[in-house]
Amino acid sequence: MIHAYKLNGYNIIVDVFSGSVHSVDELAYDIITLYENTPKQQILDQMLKKYKDDKTVNTQEILDVFSDIEELKKNKQLFTEDTFGGKAFDFKNRNTVIKALCLHVAHTCNLNCEYCFASQGKYHGERALMTYEVGKRAIDFLIENSGTRHNLEVDFFGGEPLMNFEVVKQIVAYARSIEKKYNKNFRFTLTTNGMNLNDEVTEFCNKEMDNVVLSLDGRKEIHDLTRKTIGGVGSYDIIVPKFQAFVKKRGNKSYYMRGTFTHNNTDFTNDIFHMADLGFKELSMEPVVCKPTEPYALTEQDLPILFEQYEILAKEMLKREKEGNPITFYHYMLDLKNGPCIYKRISGCGSGTEYMAVTPWGELFPCHQFVGKPEYSLGNIFDGVTNKEVVNKFKNCNAYARKDCTTCWAKLYCSGGCAANAYNATGDITGVYEYGCKLFKKRIECAIMMQVAKNQNK
């Protein structure tokens, strides 16, 4: 299967099952798109007719393209057969270890964001803070269930995790005290709204956190529209100076600004560029996922605008890179040469199998988005994973699990998509969140185009 598209003056062919990417001229583009379903003589006649005014196109040139295509096919770089689909059953029976936990250290928040999936941090339940004892047991649980895996990830999440900062520090100290004994390396991350950022938190994060995610929606009027304090006041003026001070001291360590765009700011590239103007270089903007009845929900009519925005962003990023002032956008980070293995590309994020969320009480869920949905409780950190039925459901939840994805060119980039989004859109984790698919495919097209552009500028 191939995917052929034109973007920003480039003609691009993606060979789905080999991962190969080809940048081609007009003639080769036309021939490749006809090649598998049209007799060669017919292609030859069509091309000679179409390019009759082009002096570089003649019978020999067309035959040379045929020859190049056959060479690429022989090298398994074009029209490559799917060798993985038939093995999907083996994939379901694989043994997995847990390699990452999302610790919900605070089911409470000091902001009241309108679109929050966690219902102001409470996950439709009681306010709660994780105790050190629960956090300590979660670390032990991760070590016990991680097999020989050396690198382990722990994400401090909420609600607002900095509302339980003392426990965060204690959990990290405990993990550090035992990691060598068990031959493990903990990588900690933290997601914060910034309200409680101060010098002590900054120093701690710079010492212990591999990555810190800072929530900012961009322009002040956009951010303050939805991200308000409990008293109903916009939080932009409080957090932006704190974020700027934090990033200044961050040095070369990872962070990224994470925004959410809604129907209120379909021109979201302006928010990304605003964040860049504030001095932030590692950026991400996510489309809001919510009930279609919400006033800020994205609509079908928004799609062409959003597609154009993604293109504007890609072109601007190429321009800024050329000028020596680059920014990164999470969804355009694509490592074609040294990217993930096929296992990762089929299995995706590993929610429910390799990655789980832990509530303040120690209950386990497939990921942070399923917390508070009792039917998705997997067990707890004291008794272990007891709901094997749900785990098996998530094992089956991969790039080959959905009939709708059979003919999709992007499935080895999205791995079948986000289980939580599918569940929220269709009631089934192996459903398809079509709106998200459309945006995802556009982003991948832009990301690959950027790689092609950089390749040609070498």
């Binding site: 991962g19 190969s20 590309r345």
Partner: peptide, 14 residues
């Protein structure tokens, strides 16, 4: 030269 192939990690792996 009408086809330029980028260097990519070839997936056709266990």
């Amino acid at each position: 030269k009408r086809i330029n192939t980028l260097a990519t990690r070839i997936l056709v792996q266990t």
